[in-house]
Simulated scan of single mutants.
Amino acid sequence: MPTVRRYAPGLARREELLDAARDLFAAEGFGGVSLRGIAAKAGISHASLLRYFSSKDDLLLALLTRWEDANRAWYDEHLDLPPEVSVPALARRNADVTGYVELFAALAGEAASSSHPAHEHMRRRYDQLRQVRHGAFAIERGLIAAWDGLQVMSLYLDEVDVPAELDAHFARAGGPRGDLFSEAPAAEAGMAVEVQEALVPDETGYAPGRERRAKIIDSATELFAERGFASTSLSDIASRVGSSKSTLLHHFGTKDELLTAVVTRRDERVNERIREPLRPRAFLREIVAGARSDGARPGLIELYTVLSGEATALGHPAHGYFKRRFEWVVAHFESVMAMLRASGQIDPGRDPRREARWFVALWDGLQVQWLYDPEAVDIGAELRSHLEGLLLPAA
């Protein structure tokens, strides 16, 4: 078998390079990794690496193809299993593959920008997933979205076990649906979802409202949403603002400090819609309406999706911020779900914490899909459909 002997060493080296890239992309994000860094981790020269991959983009797409081919082969081999078994099992398989969840979580957000080398690959992936059939079972957009959102959430919250959440989802019995816009029951009287202020980071270091700072934050928001944090320099932001790098550093001492200002301002804008305590059902109506309008507010979805994916790396300066934000948002929706259960609007067997995790993950995952294909995804309609599947019909 001379042909096998001749090419086997080259194939092995190619796999080593893919493994090195996988580890670095997962730890530092695509934008923060260089080909020279990958070559150094694999123990070869930059010139030698270029014999196998002509660019970092080429290497990334080869890595994606390797994983997706393996997942497709696994799924095809297990078509005899019902979806409620095969879907959580595939999630377990992915969780056991070194670096898979970390890289996928970061990449789904980063590649949302149309200029990213993996954008078209990921867009096609979502389109193909929406067409998958398993007998009479179709993988619904909401299931794909929640699965993606849970993977990201699991990198911030230790309590999230993605396969277990999928098991629980399939175990939930379907039944009659409620109507989110029907009149709330009398049992809701006295209940109120408190207004949530934007999560204030530990270190603010800036004075909102000054015109120059506001312009810097707006320009940084645009660039972070387009390119991610790691691939955007202070010089890039200064150029977009029309000022010098030294001017930026006068207002924000570091790039990390500017990032803090950007994500804080983003949450302030999201929270502007709800200004007073609301009853649970009215609150959820506002959430649905807000989700529909966010797409018309440039940068909000892009910024959150790109940064929350990129910041899954422990060393990212926004990791702590997003960890605290996930803790806060899940706890907030847990209280809403608990009120719905106490007022008889959802089944008493529902776990408010689990329902909160699923809802937040669903929302986040739908935002990702919307960025790849806004014509195919109506975030507000999907959230309403999920909530009405959770609500009991009016008596």
Rank of each mutant, 00 (worst) to 15 (best):
E272A: 14
A395Y: 07
G135D: 07
R297E: 14
F283G: 00
D373P: 00
F104Y: 13
Y7G: 03
P185N: 08
D364P: 00
V152D: 02
G365C: 07
A282G: 04
R124H: 15
E28S: 12
D179A: 10
R14G: 01
W147I: 00
R285L: 00
G344I: 07
E272P: 01
K245P: 04
E388R: 08
D347S: 14
Q131Y: 07
P176T: 08
H386K: 07
G190Q: 10
A62C: 06
T3R: 11
S235L: 12
S239C: 07
L307Y: 07
G309E: 01
L107V: 07
Y75D: 13
P176I: 00
R13P: 00
G290M: 05
L17V: 05
A40M: 06
A12L: 12
E194Y: 06
L314N: 09
Y7A: 03
R213E: 15
F359S: 09
E183N: 07
S115Q: 14
F170G: 05
A342G: 14
R210N: 14
W67G: 02
E188Y: 08
L392I: 01
R227N: 11
R281L: 15
D96S: 15
S86N: 11
D58I: 03
A146F: 12
G320E: 13
A62I: 02
L392Y: 03
A342W: 05
H134N: 10
A207K: 15
L248W: 07
L79N: 11
A187N: 08
Y75E: 14
V263H: 05
P280G: 05
Y156I: 01
W147K: 01
A112N: 04
G190E: 06
D80V: 02
A73I: 05
S343C: 13
S243T: 15
Q151V: 04
E183Q: 13
L11M: 10
S219E: 11
W147M: 00
Q369R: 12
E355L: 08
S48R: 14
A145P: 01
T264P: 03
L60V: 05
L259R: 01
G365K: 04
Q131I: 03
I139H: 09
A21L: 03
N71C: 12
L155H: 10
M1P: 06
F170E: 06
A26W: 04
